[in-house]
Nucleic acid binder design. Structure first.
Length: 624
DNA sequence: CTAGGGTTAG
């Protein structure tokens, strides 16, 4: 829209006082605001402090503004008063320029302009934008006391927030305790403080003591539990919230969806989807990508695609990333690459994460040519500097197809030190192709860089095992034992009727354990009839004696979960299981056969990808 | 006359 089109009708003459200001709200470009500004100077309205401050506000904080213009205006005003200074301060925060904000504050004091409580709330916010906020923040606190604003509720709330960001719980608490009439915002900030400190107990106590709770209070609790992986408690809070009558907002739903994604409880995710539809909530970029991510993490690609289609017209890079990554982790590599092409055609600029997702798809799908082209495009067309994750994908891409020279080339030319992820990818590639020489080198590096991860030792010992170096297998096992590294217990869960059932190896705690083990026996029989032989090729060095007694391959947690699924659902229903570790070789081959024998789709999400078993095959094409 | 706390992708 041009400025000419904005000209007021003749009856609204530009010389009346309000007109330039009302025009300001219509401005869509900086140039238009500049013209309003010029007019205000000509008609001397600029000397009206109210008018000048509204113009400053437009410049400083609107999306169409310009911080530079705001600062120029400030210096051109004859005797600017506190409000205008505050506006420009706020503008600096919006543009993430905290140092400038402090300089402005100095100038303000030099010009003998008295700061008010707004000034200090803005300064405290500036502190939280600094990398090392503690020292300067405490100075601000002193100034607050000096100017007598320490009893203002907003200032107190911001102070608590500031101390919370610095992790200074004692100081935060001091402000909180000394204040007499804090509002729900301050209570929420205090909750956040405990959440940041991962102090779940105090958090809960405070929450229960709150005189008033709002949607933010509930959101803080839910997202805390999601962040620390206490999914059951997160869902319990969500239920309590609904009982309280507080309506969930978009933030609540994004958090809950993240919880659902972690637990893989598809039914709960579907409930959220229908909740959004029922309440006519806007599927914006955030909620859209959270929904896509949820469906993808539950192994339900149809759902993810459905939501993706619902988000048409409102797709950010995040939305595309969620869908590309969903296709990739669910074994649809080629489709993921194709969707990236569509993203480009749609004119959405890919970011570094987009390329992580696409390159990941290429490596898992063995798409060497596509991956190479994509990597070059990232650098040359989009001018994105690859980070270690991108180089990791490239090493994986070449390693998986046995192009070790190319993988080495990446390692040699990249501008940083290789990380554990890279060594792991290379070591497992070497294991598949029996490249024992490079495998040993990579495995040793891996063990050094990820000494707390039991899989490092397993991989290296596997390399030694295939080259027959049994003494070294022993040495690695001993080292692992000496360092006290343990395999976390494997566990698998399955959601049925809204309840998540969790199983560990040889689990005997489930109420229907008798039926489950009968089913397991039957599964074993039918596998044998189909000519199946247990795959014990994996070196099980991470299993101690005690565990060995209870651990038969047939009683792995994923098999228990599947058996429970078989006896609890009607024939042909898809079985969805989430496992915390990687699925083992034996379970993988059994599942393929079981999907055929029982005519069931079985979807297992392991620690890094999905296995869709159907008709005797797996979507990962035995690459995982 | 005008303003002010939290969530998010492998």
């Amino acid at each position: 829209m041009s400025f000419a089109q904005l000209s007021p009708p003749p009856s609204l003459s530009l010389s009346t006082k309000q007109t330039p200001l009302s025009l300001l709200t219509l401005c869509t470009h900086l140039q238009e605001a500049n013209q309003v500004h010029a007019h205000m100077i000509k008609s001397s309205q600029i000397s009206h402090t109210y008018s000048a401050s509204r113009l400053a506000e437009f410049y400083a904080v609107s999306d169409r503004g310009s911080l530079e213009c705001a600062e120029k205006l400030l210096s051109s005003v004859h005797e600017p008063y506190t409000f205008i200074w505050n506006i420009v301060l706020r503008g600096n925060l919006k543009h993430k320029r905290p140092f400038n904000a402090f300089q402005l504050f100095d100038q303000m004091l030099n010009n003998s302009v008295p700061p008010d409580h707004f000034t200090f709330t803005f300064l405290l916010k500036a502190c939280t934008q600094l990398s090392d906020p503690e020292r300067i923040g405490k100075q601000v606190h002193c100034q607050i006391i000096k100017y007598g604003h320490e009893r203002n509720v907003y200032v107190e709330t911001k102070l608590i927030h500031f101390y919370a960001v610095c992790g200074l719980l004692v100081d935060a608490h001091k402000v909180f305790d000394e204040s007499t009439d804090l509002g729900v915002v301050a209570w929420n900030t205090m909750l956040e403080c405990y959440a940041n400190n991962r102090d779940g107990e105090s958090l809960h106590l405070l929450f229960d003591r709150m005189p008033v709770r709002d949607v933010v209070s509930w959101n803080t609790m839910i997202s805390f539990y999601v962040q620390v992986g206490r999914i059951k408690e997160a869902m319990e809070m969500f239920r309590r919230m609904q009982g309280s009558g507080e309506k969930p907002n978009v933030v609540t739903l994004v958090s809950v969806l993240s919880a659902v994604s972690q637990s893989g409880a598809l039914a709960q995710g579907k409930w959220i989807h229908s909740y959004i539809k029922r309440n006519g909530l806007d599927l914006d970029e955030n909620l859209g990508s959270a929904m896509i991510n949820m469906y993808a993490k539950c192994g339900c690609l149809e759902g993810a695609i459905e939501v993706f289609n619902e988000t048409k017209n409102k797709r950010s890079a995040d939305t595309w990333n969620a869908m590309i990554s969903g296709l990739s982790t669910n074994g649809q590599s080629r489709k993921a690459v194709e969707l990236f092409g569509e993203m480009e055609s749609a004119g959405v600029k890919p970011n570094a994460i987009t390329f992580s997702c696409v390159l990941n798809a290429c490596s898992h799908g063995g798409l060497v040519e596509e991956g190479t082209v994509c990597f070059r495009k990232m650098i040359e067309v989009y001018e994105i500097k690859p980070d270690i994750a991108h180089y990791g994908c490239m090493v994986d891409l070449f390693g998986r197809v046995g192009l070790f020279e190319k993988a080495k080339e990446i390692l040699k030319t990249m501008p940083m030190q290789p990380d554990a992820v890279m060594w792991r990818a290379l070591t497992s590639a070497c294991r598949i192709y029996k490249n024992t020489e490079m495998g040993e080198q990579a495995g040793l590096q891996l063990m050094e860089q990820a000494p707390d991860d039991h899989t490092s030792y397993v991989l290296l010992s596997n390399i030694y095992a295939i080259s027959g170096k049994w003494d070294r297998v022993h040495k690695v096992r001993k080292m692992m034992w000496e360092r006290g590294v343990k395999k976390p217990p494997g566990s698998s869960s399955i959601e049925l009727g809204g309840i998540v059932h969790e199983f560990v190896v040889g689990d005997a705690t489930h109420v229907r354990k008798k039926e489950i083990y009968m089913m397991l026996d039957e599964m074993g029989e039918r596998l044998k009839l189909a000519g199946y032989e247990p795959d014990t090729n994996e070196v099980l060095l991470d299993i101690d004696e005690e565990e060995m007694k209870h651990t038969s391959l047939a009683h792995h947690s994923e098999k228990l979960a599947v058996a429970f699924g078989f006896i609890s659902t009607i024939p042909r229903t898809t079985i969805r299981v989430v496992k915390n570790l990687r699925v083992c070789n034996d379970c993988h081959s059994s599942m393929k056969l079981l999907s055929k024998i029982y005519s069931r789709d079985i979807i297992i999400r392991d620690s890094n990808r999905f296995h869709h078993f159907r008709e005797g095959l797996c979507s990962c094409m035995d690459f995982w």
